[in-house]
């Protein structure tokens, strides 16, 4: 079967799979960003206990593999009475994993804000929370956005692993079609192209736009 005939016949399934992939990506991104900010800030905390929690979280999630985390959340947590539906388990695992990597980026971004900015905020009598929210974080964001672009691509690729717990994403649909038709080159080729298009023409341009937009807002364009 030619590639065009194949697409004509199977595009609805590939499209619905791609939809699930995009949903997983967006949910995991929101979760990952929230975890990154909270863990990144905690790692910079004055309190040793807070730092301890952040370091433990980051080392555990960066030290083990995403597949292991996914299986643990999906197969082991139910044994403790915490059953998580597979779609939720999917983006939870991917988001928590990316959050550990993102936390280091947040920490690095905050540390690269010049000392004078901290002192100036203190001089005009801002509370630590105000200082962080109004002065430090917006500037840190500009510093850390370029590496976040790469991390978002890693996140998109990471969502392919949710197929291992039978979430019906693009990877899962591709495997299903492959096992019923054996048109491997067509189906896996098409899936590769879809992932590439999502990464190269959606995620990356959006992150570049965000970088430029934020830099302009901060008067650095």
């Amino acid at each position: 079967m030619g590639f065009i005939d194949f697409l004509v016949q199977y595009w609805p399934r590939l499209l619905s799979g791609a939809g699930v992939t995009v949903a997983q990506f967006l949910l995991a991104a929101v979760l990952g960003i929230a975890i990154s900010i909270s863990m990144g800030l905690m790692k910079l905390s004055q309190k040793a206990a807070m730092r301890g929690v952040a370091v433990t979280y980051i080392e555990i999630f960066r030290g083990t593999s995403l597949v292991v985390q996914l299986y643990w959340i999906f197969f082991v947590l139910p044994l403790f009475g915490l059953t998580i539906e597979k779609f939720t388990a999917g983006y939870l695992a991917v988001g928590m994993n990316i959050g550990a990597y993102g936390a280091e980026l947040v920490r690095g971004g905050i540390l690269s804000v010049p000392k004078g900015q901290w002192e100036a905020a203190l001089a005009i009598n801002m509370s630590p929370a105000q200082r962080m929210r109004r002065i430090i974080l917006p500037q840190a964001l500009v510093y850390m956005l370029p590496p976040w672009g790469n991390l978002m691509i890693e996140l998109l690729k990471g969502t392919a692993l949710v197929s291992l717990i039978s979430v019906t994403d693009l990877m899962f649909e591709a495997r299903q079609i492959n096992s019923s038709t054996f048109l491997s080159a067509q189906v896996f080729g098409a899936a590769l192209v879809v992932y590439y298009v999502l990464a190269r023409f959606f995620v990356t341009p959006f992150m570049r736009w965000l970088e430029r937009h934020m830099a302009r807002k901060m008067g650095r364009a």
Binding site: K157, G158, L161, L192, Y195, A199, T204
Partner: peptide, 23 residues
């Protein structure tokens, strides 16, 4: 390089494993 870096390793493993026998 760009293509390989923006697509999932899992999918590439399947591709290499299944596309060979087809040919």
């Amino acid at each position: 390089v760009e293509f390989v870096r923006s697509t999932p390793l899992l999918l590439q493993i399947f591709f290499v494993f299944y596309v060979g026998p087809q040919f």
